Amino acid sequence: METSDDRCADGEEAKVLGRSTRLLAGAVLVACMVFLGSSTPFGTPSARSLPVDAAEDVVPNRVATWNLCNPCDASNVGRAADIAEHAPQVIGMQEACVRDVESIRQHLEHLHGLVYHVKYGSVLRNWGRCGGAPWNPGGYGQAILSAAPMTDAVNVEYPDGGSEDRGYMAVTTTVDGRSVRVFNTHFAERRQEEIRVDQAAVLAKEVARHDRTIVLGDFNAVPDAPELAPMWSLADDADPDCRPSSTGTCETTTDWRSKFDYVFLRDVTALSQRVEPSLYSDHDLVHADLDLR
């Protein structure tokens, strides 16, 4: 089965060159935005006037998932701009460093007037991934941003993460005006299907405890991968055309043209889903508009 790591091994040089070109283009766009923008009370240039009520600019029934790419020399100003363009009520991020997420939050507020709460699902403290002092490396793992407050947060590390510690996090928050349990996860990488089987079993058991759930994440597996069977038995993808069979038509979500990123829904109705390519990651930003009423 083809994985992200397999394709990376086959075409790493080409991919790095392509990503570098996109990042350069993105840096130019960000520089122009900063140069042309007016100043905020925080002394940070603004791409547009701040709204009177920032929360009104968030799409209340929209959720998103995005693997930020790490290690990648990507602009947090650019990452924030990509999120602000679609303004989800909730976004789950993977390969997320605490410092990067804090920077993204600040740019979302100061440049775009979008205010988010945050919860972290860090499973590593890794200097190589996230920097920081050698005795105090940055936290690395998952994060959830929500325009509404979050409660009952849990952070679970999988018994076996594979070549790197992995886990899931969950919170209760508000989407489309209704309370809902939201999960965010990152499954094992490379040729680690057997490990992902165990991880899916752990996650599915917890998801099954809740009547209404949204599961966001990078599952490192294509839709018909056997290890995703427990998830498909509980939930549907937000893309109604994407199913774990040869008849399904699943839009790809990565630079290597595979679908690894999902918005799984349990007792939640999807109105639409879109995949948005980004200059700032090797994964696309995936967002879905939902009906919880």
Rank of each mutant, 00 (worst) to 15 (best):
residue 188 A to Y: 05
residue 31 A to V: 04
residue 49 S to G: 10
residue 259 K to N: 02
residue 207 V to M: 00
residue 138 G to K: 02
residue 237 D to M: 03
residue 233 S to R: 13
residue 199 Q to V: 04
residue 51 P to R: 03
residue 52 V to F: 14
residue 160 D to K: 10
residue 101 V to M: 10
residue 247 T to A: 06
residue 200 A to T: 14
residue 252 T to M: 04
residue 185 T to A: 14
residue 82 D to K: 02
residue 231 M to R: 09
residue 53 D to C: 13
residue 223 P to M: 05
residue 61 N to W: 07
residue 287 H to T: 05
residue 281 S to M: 08
residue 131 G to W: 13
residue 234 L to V: 12
residue 147 A to Q: 03
residue 185 T to S: 14
residue 120 Y to F: 15
residue 83 I to R: 04
residue 154 V to F: 01
residue 96 A to H: 08
residue 158 Y to G: 08
residue 91 I to V: 13
residue 249 T to P: 00
residue 26 G to M: 01
residue 24 L to C: 03
residue 56 E to C: 14
residue 280 Y to S: 11
residue 99 R to Y: 11
residue 175 V to H: 02
residue 116 Y to R: 02
residue 151 T to L: 00
residue 158 Y to E: 10
residue 119 K to F: 15
residue 159 P to S: 14
residue 8 C to F: 00
residue 110 H to P: 06
residue 76 N to E: 15
residue 52 V to C: 12
residue 174 T to W: 09
residue 92 G to C: 10
residue 30 V to D: 10
residue 241 D to I: 10
residue 219 F to D: 09
residue 103 S to W: 02
residue 226 P to C: 07
residue 279 L to Q: 06
residue 37 G to V: 06
residue 122 S to E: 14
residue 115 V to H: 07
residue 13 E to D: 11
residue 129 R to P: 01
residue 223 P to G: 04
residue 48 R to L: 15
residue 62 R to I: 03
residue 7 R to Y: 15
residue 42 F to Y: 13
residue 277 P to K: 07
residue 42 F to N: 15
residue 83 I to F: 06
residue 275 V to F: 00
residue 193 E to V: 15
residue 157 E to Q: 14
residue 234 L to A: 11
residue 268 V to N: 12
residue 17 L to D: 14
residue 275 V to N: 04
residue 144 I to Q: 01
residue 78 G to Y: 01
residue 167 G to T: 07
residue 157 E to G: 11
residue 272 S to P: 02
residue 121 G to P: 04
residue 170 A to W: 06
residue 1 M to E: 13
residue 240 P to R: 05
residue 59 V to R: 06
residue 215 V to R: 05
residue 131 G to H: 12
residue 76 N to Q: 11
residue 245 S to I: 01
residue 48 R to P: 13
residue 178 R to E: 15
residue 188 A to N: 09
residue 33 M to H: 07
residue 174 T to M: 13
residue 136 N to K: 12
residue 155 N to M: 00
residue 237 D to T: 05
residue 58 V to K: 06
residue 80 A to Q: 11
residue 127 W to N: 07
residue 65 T to K: 00
residue 292 L to A: 11
residue 42 F to I: 11
residue 23 L to F: 01
